[in-house]
Nucleic acid binder design. Structure first.
Lengths: 115, 115
DNA sequence: ATGGTATGAGTAGACAATCTACATATACAT
DNA sequence: ATGTATATGTAGATTGTCTACTCATACCAT
């Protein structure tokens, strides 16, 4: 999949992963990869800033912990985050229906200039 | 639908409309609106630059004409444009499957931290 | 005649999200 | 010692879309 394709939909994807329970950034990246069947290989430079943005927007809350000598920031969906996720799902549903409709080949639709 | 949602997918939408036959910018905007059931109300400032970009990329060819005293630039899909449209459809297909898969609620998926 | 709406094309500049590339650090296996 | 996996992050560039605007003609209603 070409990079940049997730633009505008990344937030929903992250929120959806977090719906299963709290996770730290690296685990989110892996979950995204797993759930997408390997199609989503998001660079850390994309995900970490997004997490901070979502935290700033209060859709996630993050807490530091140390596991095996390594620092982790674990993110949890807030109530607002759950609400936002529901909105994202609805938005995606509408959006994908629209794109499907427009992109669908012209079978049956009269071609321009045809009588 | 929130603005900016089409980001990354506009090219495909435009190419799909043009598959029916040549159209000028204004007609493309209207076709997008019609085909989407009114959901896509793209401003001219979004579509016209996109058309020029697609023409520069040789996916469209444009020609001027005057109809009823008004200048029109009519765009036609090039062979490369048809090819690009096919790619866009395949890309969209994959992308929407991926987003569906990730966004789908967790029914049946074990929650993190659960035994 | 005047004003409003539809048609038609376009530009300038702002904005925001993602990308590439880099920096840093620990644990563990070879 | 070297490399790989784990883990988080920043800086800067890119780029497509958005908002807001300009310009022009045709046509209809008042």
């Amino acid at each position: 999949m070409r990079p940049d394709a997730v633009r505008g939909h990344l937030d929903g994807l992250i929120l959806a992963v977090l719906e299963d329970g709290p996770r730290h950034g690296y685990a989110i990246i892996e979950a995204l990869q797993t759930r997408s069947g390997g199609a989503l290989e998001l660079p850390t430079g994309t995900v970490y800033p997004a997490l901070r943005r979502l935290e700033r927007a209060a859709l996630l809350s993050g807490t530091w912990s140390t596991v095996g000598g390594r620092e982790r920031r674990t993110y949890t969906l807030t109530r607002a985050g759950r609400h936002a996720l529901a909105n994202q799902r609805a938005d995606w549903s509408e959006f994908s229906a629209v794109v499907d409709a427009v992109l669908r080949p012209a079978a049956g639709r009269p071609a321009a200039g045809m009588p």
